[in-house]
Every structure is written in structure tokens, then in C-alpha cells.
Computed example of a mutant assay.
Amino acid sequence: MAEKTGHFRDNIVLFGALAANIGIAIAKFVAAAIGGSSAMATEGVHSLVDSGNQLLLLYGQKQGRRPPDAAHPFGYGRELYFWAFVVAILIFAGGAGISIYEGLAHIRNPHPISDPTLSFVVLGIGFLMEGASWAIAAREFNAARAGQSWWQAVRRSKDPPGFIVLFEDSAALIGLVIAALGIWASGHFEDPRIDGAASVLIGLVLAAVAVVLARESKGLLIGEAADPTLIAALRAVMEANPDITWVNHVRTVHTGPDFVFVAASADFADDLPMGKAETLIEDIEAQMRALSPRITSIYIRPEKREQASF
């Protein structure tokens, strides 16, 4: 029970966004069916896609926690990065693509909105629920960014669900405002094509978000280094040892949000006995692991300075 409670607390951003999006999607589709708003139907698709995205991220987190085995000796942490990339594709195809298509279809064959009042009520409720989800995501992300700017924190984050939900909720809030303005302007100017144009604009917002998320997820999937501060600390551990004459390189890669692989090369003193070298490497590894609980695997290679490969 305690493990399940901890799991829920760790994923409160995803669970909160999932609950909000499912409820909002149902309300939006009902309002779209009654009122006939293209922008409202687009928003319903948007919330439905977001709900599926949260389920995929939760699945990716579960799969990424599987322990290492013979086929995957460094674990399955990067599976989360794969599903994060899939989410970005779904936002682009399922969210942006359908929204733009729906908007263009409405512009070609416009029809007036029969009941805008219901749409405004649903949009208002949706804004409150999305706002609550956004506040949770922003609070959690802000607590983890450690003095970095928001954009720096996104670029350096190795945990996609946090910034994906933040981007999704931000796009959702922008989309709700656009939908409301589109519905109002469509009735005010008696031009139902404006409602379709709002759908196209929502689609463009989603496309922009999808491109940013795909770019970040791709970098994580290929393999990104650990935080520069941690790398500098790892190098300092080796440079501080008198039996190491030169540190060739310290390379790191995230094999998951909470898993870091370290590979280092150093020139050891020529008169260092083999037995002492083994003890020295063990001591260095212990000091490195003490720097961060995320360090799961360490490989230190004794190598002459002039022979080191970079």
C-alpha cells in the first residue's frame, strides 16, 4: 500500500492531468454536438489526445522501472523516452492535424453555432480544470528546476512527463481562450468561418508544442549527458587523487530519468601496483556514487594520456 501511495504521489502531475482531460473531453464533445461549434469539437479532440498521452507516459514510466536483465544490462529507463517521443507525434498528428483539418472543413462549409452559451460554460469549466492541472505541473516543475530559468530547466530535464504535461496544459489553456474568442467572434460578426479559423489556429499552437516536445524527446532518446555540475564533480574526484597523473575524459549518459552511466579514462602513475590500482578504482567509484544516487554504473579505464581516444 505504501508503495502504491508513493507511486501516486510521484505521478500526481500525470494523474491530475489525466482526470482533468477525461472530464473536459466529455463535456466538450457534448457541447460541440449540441451547439455545433467547430472550435469546440477541436478542443474535444485536443483533450482526448491529451488523455491518451498521459496514459502512454504512465505506461512508459512503469516499463522504464523494470530492472536490468541479460538483454538490457543498463535497464529499461529509455523506454520512457520512446513513449515521450510517441506522445509528441500524437500531439502533432492527432491534435494539430485533426484540428487544422476540422477548421478548414468548417471554413469551406460554414454553419452557425446554434447554442454558444453552453460552449462558453464548458470552456469556462475547462479553463478552471486545466488551470488547476497546470498549477500542479508548474509547482512540481518549478521545485525541480533548481535556480535555472524555465527554458534551461526544460532543456536539461531528463524526466519528460514533467515538462510534457506543463506544455500540454499551457497549449490547452491557450486553445480554450482561442476557442472562446472564435465562438464569440463568429456570432458577433455573423461569420461562422471565424469559428473554423479558430480551429486552425488551435492546431497551429499544438503543432508548435509538438515540434518542441519532439526535439527534446529525441535528444533524450539518442542519449544526453548528465548535468554539467555533476560531470565537473566527477572529474574533480579523479583529479584530486595523487595516483592519477591525468584525467583523459569523463563521459556520462542518462539511461533513464534517474539512471546515469559514467565512463572515465585516466592516466595512472606508472609505479602504481596492480593490486593498489584495483583498490584505488573501487575508492573512486565509491566517491562518485556518493555524489548522486542517480549514478548506477561506472566504468574507469586506465589509459595513457597520449593513447586516450576522444
Rank of each mutant, 00 (worst) to 15 (best):
A144L: 12
V200D: 04
A185V: 05
D191V: 00
P161W: 00
D258E: 13
G147R: 02
L220G: 03
D243E: 11
A144M: 12
K218C: 08
A208G: 12
D267G: 01
I244C: 00
G223M: 03
V200K: 05
V247M: 00
L201W: 10
E224Y: 04
H249W: 09
A210W: 10
F141D: 02
L204S: 02
A225H: 08
G187I: 03
I194P: 03
W246N: 10
A179H: 03
T245F: 13
M238D: 13
K276V: 13
D195S: 08
D271V: 11
A179Y: 06
L206W: 06
D191T: 05
R156T: 14
D159K: 11
F189I: 08
P273V: 07
D195Q: 09
I222G: 04
W246L: 07
D169W: 04
V262D: 02
G219K: 07
S149G: 15
F167I: 12
F141I: 02
G256W: 01
V209D: 03
H254V: 06
V200I: 13
R251G: 14
A143F: 07
W184I: 10
K218E: 03
T252Q: 03
E224M: 10
D267A: 09
L181E: 00
K276Y: 07
D169C: 06
I164K: 04
A226T: 04
L201S: 10
S157R: 01
L204W: 03
L166M: 12
V212L: 15
P161C: 00
A233R: 15
V205S: 13
P192G: 08
W246C: 06
W151G: 10
P192T: 13
E216N: 08
I202H: 07
T245M: 07
S217D: 03
V209Y: 02
A197T: 10
D191H: 06
V260L: 06
L176M: 15
G162D: 07
H249N: 11
R215C: 04
L230T: 06
A144C: 06
P242K: 11
D195G: 07
A143D: 12
E140H: 09
